[in-house]
């Protein structure tokens, strides 16, 4: 008899626990996480929070570095539009997020692995939901392997750029 296995089942490793690096704004999402704590809400233990004063402080390099070092996901938490403690840092974060997301997508990083969320200091339940949802989504995707290998690898040499003849203006 032929045994049929569901390919998807094999793909989802139940034991896999993703690691998410979370950059939280000190004034909103970080406090929402504090509130979730004082309210004893329970959520997935997969995120590691790095506190910044504003989501606008998150340099896209932090995101790339996190993925390169083995993060399975990166989450940025900032204040709702119009609520930035520094007036408009969250808008800058949004701009950088969109640009970074495009780059990551081009590099083959699934969109679920990189999120920007607006979570106010009062929205502990939202924080919990985002944490759980993102963890579940990344679990389904499996481990991310964007880490830089220890062994140096060959970088193919680029062909010299063809010379462009200047258009002759008549």
């Amino acid at each position: 008899m032929l045994e049929v296995t569901d390919a998807r089942e094999v793909a989802v490793d139940q034991a896999f626990e993703p690691t998410i690096v979370a950059f939280f704004c000190n004034w909103c999402t970080y406090l929402a996480a504090d509130l979730a704590g004082t309210s004893r809400m329970k959520y997935a233990p997969n995120a590691r929070v790095i506190r910044v004063m504003c989501s606008g402080r998150v340099d896209p390099q932090f995101v790339f570095d996190a993925f390169a070092r083995g993060a399975d996901g990166v989450l940025i938490g900032g204040c709702h539009p119009g609520d930035c403690h520094y007036q408009e840092g969250n808008y800058k974060a949004l701009r950088r997020y969109q640009l970074t997301k495009r780059l990551l997508t081009d590099l083959g990083v699934e969109p679920e692995r990189f999120r920007l969320e607006w979570i106010s200091a009062a929205e502990a339940d939202r924080l919990r939901d985002v944490m759980n949802e993102m963890t579940a989504q990344i679990k389904a995707l499996g481990r991310a392997d964007f880490s830089v290998p220890d062994e140096p690898f060959d970088i193919p040499e680029l062909e010299p750029e063809p010379e462009i003849e200047e258009a002759v203006v008549s």
Binding site: V21, I50, V52, R69, A71
Partner: peptide, 17 residues
Amino acid sequence: FEDGEIFEEIVGVLTNA
């Protein structure tokens, strides 16, 4: 919140990832 400090935090949380 120096770049270096935040990069170190990233390394720190991902050492066992």
